[in-house]
Design a protein around this nucleic acid. Structure first.
Lengths: 106, 106
DNA sequence: GTGATATACATCGTAACACGAGGTATTCTG
DNA sequence: CAGAATACCTCGTGTTACGATGTATATCAC
């Protein structure tokens, strides 16, 4: 997928990945893989950004001798997903504009 | 609309705006306004980028005492629109992931 | 006729962002 | 024991949208 197109989707995808159940970095990447691929450097940057934007909270827990940082979505984070659903209507309208009259002579 | 979300859509919108008929900067902005807003500085940057990427060609013509630069889409530009239609399937899949089980307790 | 608005182009600096490269450390598997 | 997998992190770079700013002409209101 085009990198520019990903920019507007990644934050919301990460929020969606922790929406129903707290999760941690490595797992988020694997869970998102079927839908959108992102590198670790990208993910940790996003998690930092979402944390400072109060979209999620962090908690450190030990698991199998290793430390894991679990991320939990906040109400603001859920609101961000709702905003995306609003924006989706605009995206649909743009898609229709871009593809309109596209197959006029088929 | 979120600025990050626009990034992946603007190039394709500009191409779509000149797809059926050559157009020029000022008109492109007005034609796109109902779908997506962009400033002049943004548009001229995009036009330069699309030109150097061979997505469109430019021709200067006089109109009412003023010079206008008319932009015409190339086959590569049309291909870029087709690529977007392919990416659209991924976007739909992402949208479904983000919104899934969203209203499970309503 | 003059000031404002619309048309029409352009450049520059800035901030946001995804990513590759690189780093640290532990556990699991062959 | 070696290498892969797990799990975290930082830094530098290139791309990009945008506001600010500049130039110039045409049109419209008063």
């Amino acid at each position: 997928m085009d990198i520019q197109l990903k920019r507007g989707l990644l934050d919301v995808c990460v929020l969606a990945a922790i929406k129903d159940k707290d999760s941690y970095g490595y797992k988020i990447i694997k869970d998102l893989k079927p839908y959108i691929e992102l590198s670790e450097s990208t993910l940790y940057t996003i998690l930092k950004r979402l944390e400072s934007g109060k979209m999620l909270t962090v908690r450190t827990a030990e698991h199998g001798g290793r430390l894991r940082k679990y991320y939990r979505i906040t109400n603001e984070g859920l609101g961000r997903i709702d905003d995306f659903k609003t924006e989706w209507k605009e995206i649909i309208s743009i898609y229709q504009f871009v593809t309109k009259e596209d197959d006029k002579d088929e």
